[in-house]
């Protein structure tokens, strides 16, 4: 098949991410993050990115690389802060160089799902009676207080998967699926970094986890450590 979403390099796959873009990052820990794509993006010295991610806390070297390179002006995450006193995200937040928005993890997932599914937001019971509900539209649904959460769309999603075919069908391994498959549909352009690229037909259609319609670009993972 001549058609293929495979790019030659991570650099080529992120070459058009502009300053000010909203970038959704896959991976729950550094282990299953799209490290080659993030490295390539940091090397480009883009500015004012909004990064939406699970956490920077648990070994998320990928996001730290972008933050350290000065590419990020805003983080939206359930767990953006490190535990130590010398946490870079905390320091930058305190000095006013970084805007940080903390969002309950499931609410963040549902806001992105809404964007990817073309839904105009959702009413969620999470956070009622806390400061997360302040200023939000509250509605009682079947006797349960819920707050309105708008969709959250990305310009680009950078994710990690185990295997792709040329049309972008993806298969994950283990907990890699969790956050990567949650963010992939919510961006205008989704880029998947994978360990293995196979011919279309090599992945049993019954076992495709993310259908290729959600995936625009594929690159082979770079196993070199991030630095």
């Amino acid at each position: 098949m001549a058609f293929s979403k495979l790019y030659d390099s991570a650099a080529a796959a992120v070459a058009d991410i502009p300053n000010g873009a909203t970038v959704l990052l896959g991976g729950v820990s550094g282990a299953n993050a799209p490290t080659a794509l993030v490295s390539a993006l940091a090397d480009r010295n883009v500015r004012d990115l909004t990064c939406v991610c699970d956490s920077t806390y648990y070994g998320a070297e990928a996001l730290h690389r972008l933050v350290a390179a000065g590419c990020v002006s805003r983080i939206i995450s359930p767990a953006p802060f490190g535990s130590g006193k010398d946490d870079m995200v905390h320091e930058l937040w305190r000095s006013g160089d970084l805007t940080v928005e903390v969002v309950p993890w499931g609410t963040l997932a549902e806001r992105m799902r809404s964007a990817g599914a073309g839904i105009g937001g959702v009413f969620l019971p999470v956070g009622i009676g806390t400061r997360f509900a302040e200023g939000k539209e509250i509605r009682v649904v079947n006797g349960v207080e819920c707050m309105f959460e708008p969709p959250l769309r990305g310009d680009f999603a950078l994710i990690r998967a185990a295997r792709a075919d040329g049309v972008g069908n993806l298969v994950y391994v283990g907990a890699q699926r969790g956050w990567n498959s949650a963010v992939v549909s919510a961006a205008r352009v989704a880029v998947a970094e994978v360990d293995q690229v196979v011919e279309p037909g090599s992945i049993d259609p019954e076992l495709v986890i993310t259908p290729g319609i959600f995936v625009n670009r594929i690159v082979r993972a770079n196993s070199a450590p991030i630095g």
């Binding site: 806390y57 802060f81 309950p104 499931g106």
Partner: peptide, 15 residues
């Protein structure tokens, strides 16, 4: 500290 990580705790507390 002025800031904190919420993670999935708020979802679990509610659900």
């Amino acid at each position: 500290r002025g800031v904190g990580n919420i993670g999935g705790a708020m979802d679990l507390a509610a659900g």
